[in-house]
Amino acid sequence: MRILICDDDALIIEQLQKYIRNFFENISVKCPEMVCFSDGESLLADKGEKDILFLDIEMPGMNGIYVGKELKKKNDKIIIFIVTSYSEYLDDAMRFHVFRYLSKPLAKQRFFRNMKDAVDLYNTMTVKIPVETKQGVHTLPASSVIAVEAQGRKVTVHTTLCDFESIHNMQYWLELLPKNRFFQTHRSFIINLEHVTDFDRNLVHMSDNQSAYLTKRKYSAFKEAYLLYLESTR
């Protein structure tokens, strides 16, 4: 993971660095690389990976709205926090799907909550899982899994690439898949919330024309989990 900060206020950069270090200390994880910029031009010129970005709006030269849009064009997976005192830019920022909007002065506990959501999202997008079949082992991003379906003893992993017949049972997949992004809608289905297109009280429809049964007793819990997922990606 590589975290970037772009702000023309040195005190804000220092505060963000401190909060980021504190966050990773609290979860007992080594702090990732942090790179800081004071203007949008130098950020756009950077050739390194861009995973999580804290971006100011009012800066000399290019403003943060323009810079954020350009970065999203190059990498739509980048997780962008807008950090500003100017709430009037909120609508513009949301149009290019920023992750969260943080107001100055920064509130530490709110920062920690949002940082946890960002790290969870990053882990889900980047974590890879082994799909073991009788023919061999295929390593795939968890995000490419649409659903896991059981038909009797046969367990099929539906992915954006193709379907795989797993040698493992549903309990194995329940324990393996990230719980903040996958939900068991029925004893025969575990689905990826990222791929949901719509649902009713009986069925969940997903990308690639996939669908899964939704038991009535799980409808409320599924609805809540899905809405929380959507909130975490905004």
Rank of each mutant, 00 (worst) to 15 (best):
K216H: 14
D56P: 05
F81S: 05
K18N: 06
Q135S: 15
L121K: 06
Q171T: 15
G152L: 08
R187C: 06
K104P: 05
D92S: 12
K50F: 07
M62P: 02
G136W: 06
L106G: 02
A147H: 01
V145F: 04
I191T: 03
V131K: 00
P32A: 12
H195L: 11
M94N: 14
Q171Y: 15
F189H: 14
I82T: 03
E175N: 15
L177S: 04
T185E: 00
K73Y: 07
H186Y: 01
Q135D: 15
N22F: 11
R2P: 04
D9E: 15
F96I: 12
L55Y: 09
F37Q: 00
A10P: 11
D92W: 08
L230V: 09
H97A: 11
N169D: 13
G61Q: 00
D198F: 13
D198N: 13
E14T: 13
Y219D: 04
R2W: 00
A45I: 01
L11Y: 06
N169H: 10
I27D: 01
T160V: 06
N26I: 00
M170P: 04
E49L: 04
E58W: 02
P141A: 06
K108Y: 11
N202D: 11
V157S: 05
A225L: 07
L90S: 02
D163P: 00
F182G: 08
L71R: 05
H138S: 12
N26H: 10
T133N: 05
H158C: 10
I5S: 00
D8C: 11
P60F: 03
F183Y: 11
S143P: 00
Y229S: 02
D51E: 05
Q151V: 12
G40D: 07
N75F: 03
K218C: 11
A147E: 04
M125N: 13
M206W: 01
C162A: 07
R95K: 12
R95H: 13
Y172Q: 02
D208A: 12
A225W: 02
M115W: 01
C31W: 08
R95F: 00
S144G: 06
Q135V: 13
L121N: 06
K223P: 02
V155L: 04
V98H: 01
L227I: 07
D91N: 11
R2S: 11
V67C: 03
Q109N: 11
K134T: 10
